[in-house]
Write a protein that binds this DNA or RNA. Structure first.
Lengths: 342, 342
DNA sequence: AAACTCCCCGAAAACCTTTTCGGAGAACGT
DNA sequence: ACGTTCTCCGAAAAGGTTTTCGGGGAGTTT
C-alpha cells in the first residue's frame, strides 16, 4: 500500500522486529522495554535504542487481549449538533485523556436502531465502559442490564434507578436565579420559559417559584411557555410589558430567550438593569458576551458533568459502581443585566 | 467485578463458548456465523441460535489483529470548544459510521506535546488513518511522513504540500457574498472583517474585492479589522456610518459581527434591508435565525468538509492517496437582511 | 467390493504482546 | 573439582478469531 511519500507502506513495526535486530528474544525485548528485572543493563539500552530507532509502538490491541482491559470507553451521544453534548464530551475526554484512556465516539442521533447498532460496535471493540449522553433532560430508556460493561448516563438520566446518571440540577438553577434577583433588591419577578415539553423548563420554574414563596413573594403573572428562541423572547417580553404588571425582573428560560427579551425592552425604552433586571440560563458564551448589556446567567456546568460522568464510570470499571441520579451544582454568573450600577 | 444489577460481571462470551455449547469446533462456529461454505445448514442454524442466545459479539480486536485493519480512524481536534470542529466531526462521524468504521476521538487543544502524545496513543491502537482538524484556517505543521498510516487535514491545511488537506474556500465565500449583493442591486459596499491575524478574514476580503473590481466597482472605505465579536460589529458599523460614505450594503466577516452591525443600524434608524443590506459568514444557526431581520450568510459547509475528509482518508487507506489542498464550495443562504421586499 | 467423489468438520497456524518457568552459564565457596 | 547460588535469557502459553489444509465419513460409480 503506497504512502503519501510514495514509499510502500510497510506493516507496523512489531516487537519481534526489535528483538530480531537486537539479537534477543521477544521476551527479553518486552522485559527490557517495560522496565522489568532480569535484563542486563547493556542489553536493555541496546533494545531501547533499536526500539526508538525503528519507532516501535506497542500494539495496544494485543496488550488489551492479554489484560482483558482495553483502556477504551465508548461515548454515545444523541445530539452532537446540540450545544450540550459538546461540553460534556469535552469534560469526559479531558478526564479520560489524563488517565490514558481513549474515547470511541458515536452519534446515535436519537435513533434507537442506530443506538443499538453502535452499542454492538462498542461492545465488539470491548470498551471498558460506556457514557450515554441524552438529548434532553427527560429520562431516557436504559440500555438494559444485559450490557456486560458499566454504563453512566449524562444529561438525560436513565429511567432505571439502578443505573448511574449525572444530570444538571435545573431546580437549583432556578433557585440560584431568583436568590440572586432577590439579593439585588428585585421583588416583582416575571418568568419567561421555553418549550413546555422540556422537563428542564419546569424544573427551573419550580426552583424559582420555591425561592419566591419562601421569601413571601409570588411570581408576577403566569409562566410564559413558548420555544427556546430569541423570537419567542421578544414576543413574550411584549406580553409581559403589555399586561402592565410593573415588573422589575424577568427570569428567562435560556440565554437565547433572554436575548430576545433584551431586544424588546430596548425597543420599548426600558432600561436594563436600571428598570428591569434580566437573567438567562446556560451561560452560552456567544449569547451572553455579545448582548447589551452583558447577560447574567446560570452556568449548568456541563463540562463538570462530563468529567463527573467519566469519574463515576472509572469507579464502576474499578469495581465501585454507583446507582441513582447525581445532580451537578450550577453556578451563578453575574454580568451587567442584573448588576445595579454597572 | 460486580455489575450494576449485583451479579458478577462475567467475562465476555467468546466464540469458544458458542462452539462448545453447539458441539462443534471454533473453526466451524466461525464459518457458520460468517456465512462461509462447508457448513451443513442445520449445523449453521444451531450455531447461530446459540450465538444469539448467548449474546455473542465477536471480539473486533482479535479480528483486527488477523486482518491488520482495525476499522478505526483517529480524529484529532485542536479546538473542541470552537464552532468549527464540531460539524466537521459530525460529517466525519457520519461518513465513518455508514462504513462500519469507528472513531477514536482526542483533543490536543492546540498543544504540540499533547498532539504527539495522542498520536502515539492512536498509532498504538493501530488506527487505519487519522483526520487532523485544525483550530484556524492558517496552515499548520504536518504530523510528518514517518506516520505509518494515511493522514488527512481538515479546516487547517498541512504546511506540507504532499499531505492531503480539505479546507473551506474563503475566497469563494467572499465572491459569493458580493455576487449576491450585486445581483440584488447594491453598488456601494463596505466590508467589516474580523481578527486581522486570521487568514480566513483576508481570503474573504480578497474574494469580495475581486468580484467588486470585476464589476468595475471599488469597496467603500477600507476593510475594518477588529475581532470576531458582536461588540466589534457595533463599533465598526458606527465608524462606517460616521464616515458618511452613503453605503447600501455591508459585508461582515462573520455572523456574529453582522449581528452587531444590525444592532447599530437599528439604533441609528437605518432600515435593513431597505436602506442597507447586511451579510455574514458561517450560517451559525443561533445567530442568523434570531436576528432582526434574519441574516443572509454564506455557509462554509463544514459538515461536507468533514465527510469529504473522511472520504479522502478512506481512499488513502484503500491505496488511493491524494495530495494537496482541496477546497469545499461554500453555499449562499439568502434571508431577510438582503432580500428586498421581504 | 473397491475406488472415487463430495460434503462437512477439526487441527493448527497466524496476529502481537506479556508473563511464567526453567535452563544455561558464570561466579563463588569449600 | 564439585556443588551452590546468581544472573540473565529464551521457550511457551495465553488471549480470540479467521483461514488453510487435511481427514473422515457417506454416497456413488465401475
Amino acid at each position: 500500500m503506497p504512502r503519501s511519500d510514495g514509499t510502500a507502506r510497510s506493516r507496523a513495526v512489531t516487537l519481534r522486529d526489535v528483538a530480531q535486530l537486537a539479537g534477543v528474544s521477544v521476551a527479553t525485548a518486552s522485559k527490557a522495554l517495560n522496565g522489568r528485572a532480569d535484563v542486563r543493563p547493556d542489553t536493555r539500552v541496546r533494545v531501547e535504542e533499536i526500539a526508538a530507532r525503528l519507532g516501535f509502538t506497542p500494539n495496544t490491541l494485543a496488550q488489551a487481549m492479554l489484560a482483558g482491559q482495553t483502556g477504551t470507553v465508548g461515548l454515545m451521544t444523541n445530539d452532537l449538533v446540540g450545544r450540550f453534548s459538546l461540553p460534556i464530551l469535552m469534560g469526559a475526554e479531558d478526564a479520560t485523556g489524563a488517565g490514558r484512556m481513549s474515547v470511541l465516539l458515536c452519534d446515535a442521533r436519537g435513533d434507537a436502531i442506530r443506538e443499538q447498532y453502535h452499542l454492538r460496535a462498542l461492545l465488539g471493540r470491548r470498551v471498558d465502559g460506556i457514557i450515554v449522553v441524552g438529548s434532553a433532560t427527560d429520562p431516557r430508556p436504559s440500555l438494559g442490564h444485559h450490557v456486560p460493561v458499566p454504563v453512566v448516563y449524562a444529561y438525560a438520566p436513565s429511567d432505571d434507578a439502578q443505573d448511574a446518571s449525572v444530570v444538571a440540577d435545573n431546580v437549583r438553577a432556578g433557585e440560584l436565579a431568583v436568590e440572586h434577583l432577590l439579593a439585588t433588591g428585585r421583588r416583582r419577578i416575571a418568568h419567561i420559559s421555553g418549550d413546555v415539553a422540556y422537563a428542564a423548563a419546569h424544573d427551573r420554574v419550580r426552583g424559582a417559584d420555591q425561592v419566591l414563596s419562601e421569601a413571601g413573594l409570588t411570581r408576577v403573572g403566569p409562566v410564559l411557555f413558548g420555544s427556546w428562541t430569541e423570537s419567542w423572547g421578544r414576543t413574550a417580553a411584549q406580553i409581559v410589558l403589555d399586561q402592565g404588571g410593573d415588573v422589575d425582573a424577568i427570569v428567562c428560560g435560556s440565554d437565547q430567550i433572554a436575548r430576545g427579551v433584551l431586544d424588546t425592552l430596548r425597543d420599548r425604552g426600558v432600561d436594563v438593569p436600571g428598570d428591569v433586571a434580566v437573567m438567562g440560563f446556560d451561560n452560552w458564551e456567544a449569547m451572553v458576551s455579545g448582548s447589551r448589556p452583558s447577560l447574567t446567567t446560570v452556568d449548568m456546568q456541563f463540562e463538570t458533568m462530563g468529567r463527573r460522568a467519566a469519574e463515576l464510570l472509572f469507579a464502576a470499571i474499578d469495581g465501585r459502581p454507583s446507582h441513582g441520579v447525581e445532580a451537578i451544582e450550577p453556578r451563578l454568573v453575574v454580568r451587567g443585566s442584573t448588576a445595579v450600577g454597572v
